Amino acid sequence: MPLPVRVVLVHGSQLSGAQWARYAGLLGPDVDLVVPDLPAHGSRRGEPFTWEAALDVIGHAVSGDGDGRPVVLAGHSLGGYLAMAWAAEHPRALAGLALLGATAVPKGPGAALYRGLARVEHRLGVDRMSRALDREFDALLPEDLAAVIKEAGYGFDGIPAAWDGVMTRCRPEMLAEVTCPVLLVAGQLDQLRVEARRFARAARSAPWVRRVTVPRGLHVFPLTHPHETAAALWELVIAARTRTDR
């Protein structure tokens, strides 16, 4: 019987754990899948977003019930930067780490762009932003998945604090002491993939680092290309089992 592995998937900003609705079936029954909602998102929309609270949510998801299972931690966009930050604080705790659409250094012009987007979203208001996202997901996703995401709702209140944390705290060098395999996945057309090589070089203590590009994938590739994303994550599951069996 395959060794159970806990896989923690952390969603991107505005979304929730619902974005991973298809992954239980794709990763299989021998994976203990955990999809927490970050503060100010999903079931935690009433909670203010703070960096410390978000890392605490991830920590609880990783530890689970304390059964000692090897853990693969993966995050998309905001979730990827938070996963990296958690791994930097616990560099020996994980059996695998995956950053999905989170390999751009958030400073300079890119940081200014995201701060500007956050201000625009705030001015537009919740209703107009929700309708815009509904239209986007209706166009990009299968009807059933779009319905699940829309039902879970969107989180806008935490965006300024969340991305301010990313921009002021997150750098590739945070990977330097992480001792597990590291996977860097990005869509071919993903704006947050531009410095993947720098992130790969920074993970100097990892036994291996692999970069994966999803053909024709946008920044939302974990939603639009779940099979390709799950296949990449499966490499970390296999690696986790191999390391534990030694």
Rank of each mutant, 00 (worst) to 15 (best):
S130A: 05
G59R: 01
L9I: 00
G46P: 00
P91C: 00
C170K: 03
L27G: 05
A21S: 11
A230S: 11
A118N: 03
A239P: 06
R45I: 06
L223D: 06
L175I: 06
H219Y: 07
R193T: 11
D67S: 09
L141R: 04
G165K: 11
H76V: 03
G64W: 01
G68L: 01
S43L: 01
E143M: 11
G79W: 11
L55V: 10
A104L: 13
L140S: 00
Q188T: 09
A206G: 01
A88P: 14
M174Q: 14
V35C: 09
G155H: 03
F137N: 06
L113F: 12
V148Q: 12
A231N: 10
D190A: 03
R6I: 06
F221W: 08
W208I: 15
H11M: 00
V7R: 08
M129Q: 12
G96S: 00
V166E: 02
R45L: 10
V72K: 01
A93W: 00
L3F: 04
R115C: 10
D164V: 00
L218G: 14
V214N: 07
R216F: 02
A104S: 03
E121R: 15
E143D: 08
I149P: 00
A74H: 08
L189W: 10
E151G: 15
P142M: 06
W163Q: 13
W208V: 13
H227S: 13
G153S: 03
A104Y: 13
M174L: 12
W234S: 15
D30A: 09
A95N: 04
S63E: 12
A61V: 03
A203Y: 02
D56Q: 15
R243D: 14
L9S: 05
H219W: 08
P29I: 04
E143R: 15
R6T: 05
W20C: 03
A161Q: 05
A93V: 06
A231H: 11
G12A: 05
R211F: 04
P29E: 11
L3Q: 12
E195M: 11
G101H: 03
G79M: 07
V120L: 02
K150G: 08
V72N: 07
D190S: 07
H225E: 00
Y114P: 15
Y114A: 14
H11K: 09
A40I: 10
